[in-house]
Computed example of a mutant assay.
Amino acid sequence: MRSTGRKRAAIRRGTPLPWNGEHPAACRVRSHRRTRRRAAAGARWRRGPGLDHAVRASAGGTRHRGAPVHVDRQGPAATGRGAHPPGAGPVDRIRGRRGPPATGAGLRQCGVRARGVDGGARDRPHAGLAAAPSRLRPRAGERRWASEFSDSLADRRVLLLGFGGVGKAVAARLAPFEVDLTVVASRSRVEDGMPVHGVDELLDLLPHAEIVIVTLPGGDATRRIIDDSALSALPDGALVVNVGRGELIDTSALVDHLRRGRIRAALDVTDPEPLPAEHPLWELPGLLITPHVGGASSAMRPRTVRLIRAQIERMRAGEPPLNVVYES
């Protein structure tokens, strides 16, 4: 027979107790009731498997106890990456599906991005898109072991268009592949030791690029920045990788260049999105499509929880939140 202390510890964790015949659901119900009592008393949770515990760490909030939460990461098209509209503070964006949203007394309203959440979750597969098209070959039905010489990512001239959170994460993941990296962003500067070219130099740099990786946000300033003239400036056989927004590339121009076999492409985002079943992109050669699922991995949730906790702790300490897009 196990000790009473171990039983109590197991009940607190919600662990089934097969040795005394208690149903697992009863353990979970008791654990849930204890969680709600502690949350009502304003207890700070430092451990927990999900976002609900992170939100309960915010003492003084008016969040409805027991309500599941989700993080709204969608924003206006002008910013394109998780910026939230005016009138919604950083705590207000963490919303329960039941009950009133949490509000913090005396907080200034601001919009924040989920920067850092996507970095680990998305950019490993995104960097891999740059190498995949040169090694993927149709072998359906052949059932034979055939070695084949192919181009490597090493020593390739890569142009990275965009040097924000995603762009920097992609650059870090390309570094071990020994690529010749050129970075282009909205303005010329030196950032994190990397020389960055202004977007006004893009057309002059494209003829020297073998791979172009687009990580820009959406909006009027970046819509169709890769148009027919930009695609025409690329050398034959160049690879275009889009992991930003579908609207960054002129789809009609891309279809034309792919159909002629002049360039290749790897797209995690498309315009339109989702891509209709009858769209010509599905049938074109030299194209790899992933349905905007770079962040759908086990890496997303823990990074989301860490960012929410960090934002709550900063607000409790009277510090400004991270990744502020605007304030009001």
Rank of each mutant, 00 (worst) to 15 (best):
Q74G: 14
P320C: 01
R122N: 13
A277T: 12
V324Q: 06
Q109N: 06
R135C: 01
P176K: 06
N323S: 05
H292T: 00
R223I: 08
T215I: 12
R224V: 14
V71C: 07
G286K: 00
R262D: 03
D220I: 12
T251S: 02
A171K: 03
H208D: 14
P68Q: 05
G96E: 05
L206V: 04
V190Q: 12
L181H: 02
L51F: 04
A78I: 05
P18D: 05
I312R: 01
L258F: 01
F149Q: 10
K168I: 09
A78D: 14
G48L: 00
R157K: 10
L239S: 03
I312C: 04
S31V: 11
P24Q: 10
I308R: 01
R264W: 00
E142K: 12
R65S: 06
P85N: 08
A59K: 06
R115Y: 05
R113N: 13
L216F: 10
L136F: 13
R139I: 15
S3V: 09
A209E: 14
L51M: 07
R223P: 02
G120M: 05
Y326W: 15
R223F: 09
E201C: 12
P285W: 03
P90F: 11
L267M: 04
A78C: 08
P90E: 11
P321D: 02
W19H: 09
A233Q: 00
A9T: 13
R12K: 10
H208T: 11
R6Q: 15
G141H: 11
V243M: 05
R113C: 10
G48W: 00
V293Q: 15
R8T: 14
A310W: 03
D123F: 13
R34W: 11
A209F: 14
A310Y: 01
A26L: 06
W45V: 15
A83R: 03
S147G: 14
G218I: 12
A146Y: 10
V269L: 03
G198E: 08
L205R: 11
E247Q: 11
A83M: 05
A67T: 15
G246Q: 03
L206R: 05
P274I: 06
G104V: 10
T103R: 15
R135E: 07
R81W: 06
A88S: 14
V324H: 02
A221S: 00
L322Q: 14
A146T: 15
G295T: 13
L258K: 04
K168V: 08
G246V: 08
A102R: 10
R309Y: 08
M1T: 14
G244S: 03
G80S: 12
H23L: 11
R306Q: 15
S134F: 09
P86Y: 07
D236T: 12
R36C: 12
L231D: 00
G106F: 04
R309I: 09
E327G: 07
A146E: 15
P195I: 14
G99T: 01
G294D: 11
S58R: 04
A43G: 13
A185C: 04
A265R: 01
E22F: 03
T215F: 03
G116N: 12
